[in-house]
Design a protein around this nucleic acid. Sequence first.
DNA 1: TATGAAACAACAGAGAC
DNA 2: GTCTCTGTTGTTTCATA
Lengths: 157, 157
Amino acid sequence: MRLNDLDERILHALAEDARRSYADIGALVGLSAPAVKRRVDRLRAEGAITGFTVRVDPAALGWRTEGFIEIYCGRNTSPDDIHRGLERLPEVVAASTVTGDADAVVQVFAADMRHFEEVLERIASEPYVERTKSVLVLSPLLRRYTAGAPQWPGSRP
Amino acid sequence: MRLNDLDERILHALAEDARRSYADIGALVGLSAPAVKRRVDRLRAEGAITGFTVRVDPAALGWRTEGFIEIYCGRNTSPDDIHRGLERLPEVVAASTVTGDADAVVQVFAADMRHFEEVLERIASEPYVERTKSVLVLSPLLRRYTAGAPQWPGSRP
DNA sequence: TATGAAACAACAGAGAC
DNA sequence: GTCTCTGTTGTTTCATA
């Protein structure tokens, strides 16, 4: 995939506000509306853009407790096992296998401490989980493109 | 803020695809298009919806290395100090102060290992940073609403 | 191959009910 | 909440460098 500066600027504009009209974006980057649309279509077809979504404030919706749970698994646990166990929990918003002591890191939102503990217990009770270690988020310092926005740095490497 | 089931279903529909028309969403949830629009407007006014954005595949854009960097700070380091230092780094997509041994956890995307190391060095050289500890993401298991999507569980607590 | 201009269809927005 | 109208926008077609 080769992106040029125009593609990058279009991505920036969409990241800030995906409801901008093609004409608006065109005015920003110096193209006509159809030209912008064609590039956006190409970015989607190539997989760079995977969709359009809404930015939500978790706190405003009642998710006031956030944390990361590291999970340590037994031998012969596959990433698929972990995935299957976690995808049933709606409070889990992200999970990755990682290097280091823990096998995976799980990002969790909960209504409050009591709820967080409940989620922690559900994760800990998964058969492949040997133990967990969790840290709570005190204050979210920075979320590129606001809370829960595209997890990408916004420019090309 | 009080959300009812209709609001929640509208949020779900928008999270999946923010470009759905109000009429489409209305057909999904059993409302007319203007009724959906009014609810979306209210959700924006109340702060539950903070905006609309594009979902991006970091790997497709060349960000193939992801990791978490825990930073340990000196005494009398304020969250603002950390924020100021990190916001200048485009590779940092999220950061939070946390409980536990580390003072903050930083999520970073980089082009490759070499680039990741560079970012790590830049963070480690901040005056308030005493030491860091980083883990690399092996495979992203789960991203609710795909990579880089809203970091919220998708239903109400 | 990428673009701009024009034409059409679909939609958002605002009002009355 | 719905229905209706109007201006705007998305989308396609076509011509062009």
